[in-house]
């Protein structure tokens, strides 16, 4: 299923300048993501994985280096081609779920794609909750709503920034299954940032392991478990083996830097 390169990251560095110090959040990052590929980025906190994702979104441009989407140099957000999902569901509390899903359409001054929205709401198990306010929904439902909002724009690339980080373990498992189900249907290109190594292995085709200070790509792990994947996958010896080896990497990179 190897296809054309969707995202090309070339020598990307991102330096944050605060009043007192300079932080090299990402340093000399070069990699690519193929069309329809599911890539997870893991690493200790502060390793620059979220910064990398924001560089890919066009919201925070890289200090040096380039990002190309379908061969086109990224200089600003591409609302029709890139969808973002944040750690917080970011549903506007004064709008109902459906009004939240309609927001991007309103911003783009486009007609709402009712058919796609309906289909996505159905897959997300949110049918019947269209007119609920976010405060009336559970954490999992809100996050599914925010994924529906992003997918309703039918982007080619979905960037996800620890979207399930704030959810409890059981909800998280369900969200992982939901995301795989949606992904297997739509085959979007996904870059998914997480601090959970098992989540990364469960979801991804490839896992990028990053090490902190400065944030670099330290290792790439191919995960070739067959799909569709079942939640029991995480108890298989091979899964645990990969988990252990990535874990050692992440731990090692932390202690190596004198934390």
């Amino acid at each position: 299923m190897a296809q054309a390169t969707r995202i090309q990251i070339t020598d990307v560095s991102k330096i944050y300048q605060t009043e007192t110090k300079t932080v090299e959040a990402v340093k000399n990052f070069t990699e690519s993501v193929k069309d329809g590929e599911f890539v997870c980025v893991v690493g200790a906190s502060g390793c620059g994985k979220t910064t990398l994702l924001w560089c890919l979104s066009g919201l925070h441009p890289a200090t040096s280096g380039t990002v190309h989407i379908d061969g086109e140099l990224l200089t600003k957000p591409l609302p029709d081609r890139i969808g973002m999902v944040f750690q917080d569901s970011n549903l506007l509390p004064w709008r109902t779920l459906i009004e939240n899903i309609e927001l991007p359409f309103q911003i783009k001054k486009k007609a709402v794609n009712r058919k796609l929205v309906d289909e996505l709401l159905d897959v997300a198990g949110l049918k019947g909750f269209e007119n609920s306010y976010p405060g009336e929904l559970s954490g999992g439902m809100k996050q599914r709503g925010s994924i529906v909002r992003a997918l309703a724009q039918d982007p080619e690339v979905l960037l996800m920034d620890e979207p399930f980080g704030a959810l409890d373990a059981f909800t998280r498992e369900e969200m992982n299954l939901f995301l795989l189900k949606v992904w297997e249907r739509t085959r979007k290109t996904i870059v998914f940032v997480t601090h959970s190594i098992s989540e990364a292995i469960f979801l991804a085709d490839r896992v990028w392991v990053m090490s902190p200070r400065p944030g670099r790509l330290s290792r790439i792990v191919d995960v070739d478990f067959p799909r569709p994947r079942d939640i029991d996958l995480q108890f298989e010896p091979k899964f645990i083996e990969i988990l252990k080896s990535i874990r050692e990497d992440v731990e090692g990179s932390k202690s190596g830097k004198g934390q």
Partner: peptide, 27 residues
């Protein structure tokens, strides 16, 4: 398929009441 069991309505709603502590519209 296990993935069909997504509508975790009852447990979800319990956690929703916990979440309501801060801001956001309650009923």
């Amino acid at each position: 398929m296990a993935t069909d069991n997504l509508a975790d309505k009852i447990p979800d709603f319990n956690s929703a009441t916990v979440n309501q502590g801060g801001n956001g519209p309650v009923d």
